[in-house]
């Protein structure tokens, strides 16, 4: 074995160990925690809230993100460039900044929030705020993936569909979407995972109230100050969920249709 190959092998082992050791440590330590911790009110509430909010925000993301992704893949309008920049922003912003930005917009004194408050709608520190924060940070991930999927569908298929009498919408549903399916599904999973893990924007904009806005990542942070056991159990649950997500992502058929 030459020196370079040795370095590569050692680096590989180091990286795997560096990532797997802390993860394994959480799982091992959490295994020692008492079962009551797992069923404690805070833990159960956090798991329920996380699953609910991440699923709701992913639904919202798919509903508003899919037409946007298709538009980005197909249009050359000025709107496209503008959207491009707007969509990249949440990905480079630190989550805490995203949280402040959401407060500045939708907070009680916010640019839009003060009008919402005047008609009796208060968003901050509600479960709705959690969904908004998750949507804000996870939307770009979905749009990027779905957009790449739509862009890879040859326009000739759409042209063929039009000449056969299908409207643009029917063509989208029956041709473009099925052909972009794996990228769209990948986007769904990535944005759901991002929403599950959201911390910074949520704690700033939605606060940290058990059962209302305390999602699993927030609960880990809170639990750490009281009981290491509880924090470990929550962390272990998040790791398991992440693992299931990654595994699902792996087994989605990455079907590439042969040019037909």
């Amino acid at each position: 074995m030459n020196a370079f190959a040795l370095i590569r092998t050692l680096a590989g082992i180091a990286v795997a160990g560096f990532i797997l050791l802390p993860v394994a440590s959480v799982l091992i330590s959490a295994g020692g925690a008492s079962p009551e911790v797992l069923l404690s009110y805070e833990v159960v509430a956090a798991v329920k809230l996380s699953l609910l909010t991440a699923t709701l925000s992913t639904l919202l993301i798919v509903i508003i993100g899919t037409p946007v992704a298709y538009h980005l893949a197909r249009s050359d309008s000025a709107l496209r460039r503008f959207l491009e920049v707007a969509l990249n922003l949440p990905m480079v912003l630190p989550p805490a900044v995203a949280g402040i930005a959401l407060l500045a917009a939708f907070g009680r004194e916010g640019i839009l929030g003060r009008y919402l408050a005047s008609i009796g709608i208060a968003l901050p520190f509600t479960t709705t705020a959690v969904v908004i924060a998750q949507t804000f940070v996870a939307l770009p991930l979905y749009v990027r993936s779905a957009r790449a999927g739509f862009a890879s569908v040859s326009r000739t298929f759409e042209g063929a569909s039009y000449t056969l009498g299908a409207s643009e919408f029917t063509t989208f549903l029956r041709v473009s979407l099925p052909l972009a399916k794996s990228a769209v599904l990948a986007g769904v999973i990535m944005s759901w995972a991002r929403a599950m893990g959201e911390f910074g924007a949520t704690i700033m904009f939605a606060g940290n109230f058990v059962g209302r806005t305390q999602t699993m990542p927030l609960a880990v942070y809170s639990a750490l100050q009281v009981s290491m056991d509880k924090a470990l159990v929550l962390a272990a649950l998040l790791i398991l969920i992440s693992f299931i997500i990654l595994f699902t992502f792996e087994i989605i058929p990455k079907r590439r249709y042969a040019d037909a």
Binding site: S154, T156, F157, G159, A160, S161, T163, L164, G165, A166, S167, T170, R174, V175, P178, L179, Y257, A258, D259, A260
Partner: peptide, 24 residues
């Protein structure tokens, strides 16, 4: 229109391809 690439819908079988224009 018969395209140069034929553009048969790769996710549909022969029957579904032919039926496409009638279904829509």
């Amino acid at each position: 229109f018969v395209f140069q690439e034929l553009a048969l819908f790769p996710h549909l079988n022969v029957y579904e391809n032919i039926a496409f224009g009638l279904k829509v």
